[in-house]
Design a protein around this nucleic acid. Structure first.
Ligand code: ZN
Ligand code: ZN
Length: 394
DNA sequence: TCGGTCGGACTTTAAACGAT
DNA sequence: TCGTTTAAAGTCCGACCGAG
């Protein structure tokens, strides 16, 4: 189940902080992020783990208007690394994505890339359950003119004192390693992947793909003809705009949290390029591309979720999702109006918190995921600048 | 058709455990 | 004290559906 996965991931990310890695990570194509990435500010560029921005819509950034990569490039041969890149690992013949011979069994689809979340979504995004980013104001808030209310929420403190049963020790290679049975983790041991060269981070656990690391600082790739690089003065390689690479796979969103995340198929990490060739700002819908919206062709369509929707106000999932929380009466910030309505909270919210900037585009009328049960009401999506427990709003 | 809503899968984080 | 395990807390994908 997902439990396994989540377990795996959690254990893999046991270190709270991402190791300080060279920031030379290719940024997620601006397609979904309105082009201006990385965001200004002290934040490190976030990493994105999405394999394909949006399989269903054509990538506006694609110089050629080439069809966007909607299909996973499983079958593509590994392209030569573009200038400024280095394949850190050879491609193991068994690695998914490696060209396979006609007789060979079809390659397994690459493991689903991990979703990368921002550490803290802004209240607006959180309430709308939309993707946020590290910048403040975030992309989405900017789009909706909510920049002013784009603030981090306040992470609710974790409950303490909760007793737990004894832990099940995951037999770690104690005494050799003959503890295979049951040890689900055992077979996840990264194969014998050669360690990356000094100066490079280890590939994320479980990924033996050919990693492509950006050249180390100061590394100046030799010119094709073997001559010293023309502009390589002071060891600083010239800004490498790599030529136009066919959207595939060079445009492939590489990041994957490079320092820690898995690498999707053609794991190329382009050298940090100036933002985006033509950072076309794309509406938030990072997740739900406007075009595809409903019919969004998802990378993992198989995931399909069904849902019988309850009108808001009714007891709907949101509420149920919060039941735990509701159970302990999260009255941290009950709105003054003690009996926060249950039905029509949205409307209410909208009425009481008109968008601060009427001149803005489509005022997001979302009132946030209301929690009728707690009555904490919809998050003042664009009303209250003061931070609040996020979940209280969802 | 577009764009907002929200169910629920998934990720992150930190407290509890347990070994040393 | 430190590494591991576990689950609470939080993020956000993507189906669904109302409005235009
Ligand atoms: Zn946001
Ligand atoms: Zn925001």
């Amino acid at each position: 189940m997902s439990a396994d996965q989540s377990k795996a991931s959690s254990s893999a990310s046991s270190s709270p902080q991402e190791p300080p890695q060279p920031p030379a990570v290719a940024h997620y194509p601006p397609a979904a992020y309105g082009g201006h990435y990385p965001p200004p500010g002290p934040y490190p560029p976030p990493f994105y783990a999405y394999p394909v921005p949006d399989p269903s819509h054509h990538d506006p950034n694609n110089p050629n208007g080439a069809p966007s990569q909607s299909v996973a490039p499983f079958f593509m041969a590994v392209p030569p690394p573009p200038p400024g890149m280095v394949y850190a690992y050879p491609v193991p013949p068994t690695a998914p994505g490696y060209p396979f011979a006609p007789g060979m069994p079809a390659p397994q689809p690459p493991p689903k890339p991990k979703r990368k979340q921002v550490k803290m979504a802004c209240t607006n995004c959180a309430s709308a359950c939309k993707r946020c980013d590290e910048a403040r104001p975030c992309e989405r808030c900017i789009k909706y003119g909510l920049a002013e209310t784009c603030v981090d929420g306040v992470r609710k403190e974790r409950k303490k004192g909760i007793k737990r049963g004894p832990y099940k020790r995951k037999n770690r290679a104690t005494s050799g390693e003959g503890s295979a049975e049951g040890g689900e983790a055992t077979n996840e041991q990264p194969a014998a992947v050669p360690p990356p060269p000094a100066g490079y981070p280890m590939p994320p656990e479980g990924y033996s793909f050919p990693y492509v690391y950006p050249p180390p600082m100061g590394y100046v790739p030799a010119a094709p003809d073997g001559q010293p690089h023309p502009e390589g003065a002071n060891g600083a390689p010239p800004a490498m705009h790599h030529p136009f690479y066919p959207s595939y796979p060079a445009m492939y969103p590489t990041p994957y949290g490079y320092p820690g995340g898995p690498m999707p198929y053609p794991p190329l990490i382009p050298t940090p390029i100036a933002a985006s060739p033509n950072g076309t700002a794309k509406p938030d819908s990072a997740s739900a591309p406007p075009t595809a919206n409903g019919a969004s062709v998802s990378a993992d369509a198989g995931k399909g979720k069904k849902r019988s929707r309850a009108k808001n106000g009714e007891e709907s999932g949101r509420a149920s999702k919060k039941t735990k929380e509701a159970a302990q009466v999260d009255v941290q910030q009950q709105p003054p109006n003690g009996d926060s309505g249950v039905a029509g909270v949205d409307q209410l919210e909208k009425d009481q918190h008109p968008p601060p900037q009427p001149q803005q585009p489509p005022p997001p009328s979302y009132a946030g995921h209301v929690d009728p049960s707690t009555g904490s009401g919809p998050v003042a999506a664009f009303g209250g600048p003061e931070p609040r427990p996020l979940m209280a709003a969802m």
